[in-house]
Design a protein around this nucleic acid. Structure first.
Lengths: 337, 337
DNA sequence: ATAGGTTGTCGAAGCGCTTCGACTCCGTCC
DNA sequence: GGACGGAGTCGAAGCGCTTCGACAACCTAT
């Protein structure tokens, strides 16, 4: 392994000079800088991460806690993780991957050991056990998601309330009166993961204003669960003509079942999905959808974190405005029979 | 931040003693050990990662390179990443997430800086630019995937050749004679990611032995692409009664299209998918499938890596035997018309 | 011409840990 | 009873880097 000292010797300068060339924290004459840079190239020098972390008290690592469960939004999670990693690299940071498995202990371990300079938490619950620890530590952090109490925290998330409202507006505008929300798996609600409730709240309150009747049913993904759920929906509200689907893995089953029942989309029934654009365009009907901006969320989280690391940061809640894209799965409500 | 020295002082011993309590590398009397452990608890001590890495020359971090692209198998990738992280933690290692973005440079950076003790590479191409670097370094590594030349490398992967053969056998046994393979997106083949070709080779050679006729068509996921592909298949081979689908995002479109054409699954047409079990059971028909054992692959990779880190490891290629689960999407070939 | 500021470089201290050799006890064995 | 060896502990060196203060050299403004 090549060390700083070896580079310094090769370039005929002191170790500290090489260090300053690398960090740019003091001015260095052009000639010296060039010589040092050449030596670095020539010897193939890479600063030792451990030594650097020890001396500077910064590891240049961001910890990313992803959920262990795979009961929801897997592609979204993946996309966020990749966006976080890519943006972090662009700022000179690496990403340490943590699963929820260790729970709050992971936070303690990482902050205590100086393994990472900062954290990004995904899959935040309304009353998350990790939050008190985050508030206690001086280590910057950003949540992707929205807990009940956001005081002293920085959060980035899609504005799910507005998302719900947007869905209601679109369906109301098309003349629908009875709509059904196919929600996430019951486990997601039990876990109090906020976003599902927020969507529903937004949708319900806007629906009230617009005179829509809303029926909400949680639903595990998959064909069988969807089949049961759908039967119950039409049983209870035969006049339902609009669907809002929040659970990605319920989308395709729903479309298949509607088809099988002879209900045409969008002539008889309109469907809006809350999902990544890719899913919306790949479905068997091109879906009108509100996109989940995974990239933007990941990038936003990193940028806020970097700002905080550089002391420019502020605690705030950034809600990304939802965008509804009209495609082929929504249309005017059918004339009443 | 609490340091070793503070713990030592609190427990009334020297710093080295505390270190030995922590590492167990020298014997410590029960009494001393207990006192030290109590002090650690009481003070909430966590060893500083940087200092430890510097002094011991090991970071206890494994780097995991995941593909940047999301054109294939996203859930599988995610599941592998989670399995890797979980198993690594069980062995006392953390996981650093790298995207393919940096390419070979990432390998250089990580090995050069001592950021990680070892690497796991996913999405390995047949002639991957990172492989020469891996062969050159002393740092242990494991590939998930199979390059063209495996000499000096350790690889873990599903035996895709056997997977293809298994699909052929199952369909042949059921009396099918004309089968179609719906492959990955063309981009996957252009990238030479091995597994797609291996599946096809295995399937073709077994088919030859069994007298099956095979038509292979790459296919982007999604409804529109699948629609085109399917039309061409039946155009060219009207007697096709068996499908093997390798592209996850083509499964549901295929089923929908067959239904629309009035071809019943499994009465008229049999479908085998190569996909995670979860996808197979959640589809609109419970799919006969060969599972992609993501968990097992992730865990296997970590275990091999740990073995190498401890000096017990050997370079070898571990191919996981495929398992075919019969569900509701395959049945006897229909009698010839 | 001289005081004062800038610029570029160096030496040394130290970050918190691991590890090696050395030392002290104490029990064992001839 | 003295040599021997193992168990338990300590002190010190050093891992490779950053950073602070010091200093020489030079430039400018009075």
């Amino acid at each position: 392994m090549v060390t700083l000292a070896e580079v310094a010797q090769h370039a005929g300068v002191s170790a500290s000079t090489v260090s300053y060339v690398l960090s740019g924290k003091r001015s260095i004459s052009a000639g010296t800088r060039e010589r040092v840079e050449q030596s670095i190239q020539l010897l193939g020098y890479h600063p030792n991460a451990g030594a650097r972390a020890l001396a500077s008290n910064r590891s240049n690592i961001i910890a990313l806690m992803i959920p262990l469960r795979t009961d929801m939004y897997v592609p979204v999670m993946m996309e966020i993780a990749i966006a976080v990693t890519t943006s972090a690299r662009a700022h000179g940071y690496d990403v340490l991957l943590l699963t929820g498995e260790e729970g709050p202990d992971a936070v303690r371990r990482v902050t205590g050991s100086g393994l990472a300079d900062a954290m990004i938490l995904m899959d935040v619950e309304l009353d998350d056990g990790r939050l008190p620890l985050l508030r206690d530590t001086t280590q910057p952090s950003v949540l992707i998601g929205l807990p009940a109490d956001t005081s002293g925290l920085t959060c980035v998330d899609l504005d799910f309330g507005a998302t719900g409202a947007l869905c209601a507006e679109h369906l109301a505008m098309l003349g629908h009166r009875d709509i059904a929300v196919i929600g996430e798996a019951p486990a997601v609600y039990e876990r109090h993961t906020g976003f599902a409730e927020r969507t529903l709240d937004g949708l319900r309150s806007r629906s009230r204003e617009l005179g829509l009747r809303v029926l909400h049913r949680p639903c595990e993904g998959g064909f069988d669960a969807m089949s049961l759920t759908l039967a119950r929906v039409f049983d209870e509200r035969p006049g339902t003509t609009g669907f809002v689907v929040q659970n990605e893995s319920a989308v395709e089953p729903l479309l298949a079942l509607l088809r099988r029942q002879g209900r045409a989309v969008p002539e008889d029934v309109s469907v809006i999905a809350i999902c990544p654009d890719q899913v919306a365009v790949q479905a068997s009907v091109r879906l009108t959808s509100v996109a989940i901006p995974a990239q933007e969320m990941g990038r936003g989280a990193v940028e806020h974190l970097i700002a905080k690391l550089e002391g420019r940061g502020t605690d705030d809640v950034v809600l990304i405005a939802p965008e509804l894209t009209v495609r082929a799965s929504t249309g005017p409500a059918p004339a009443a029979p």
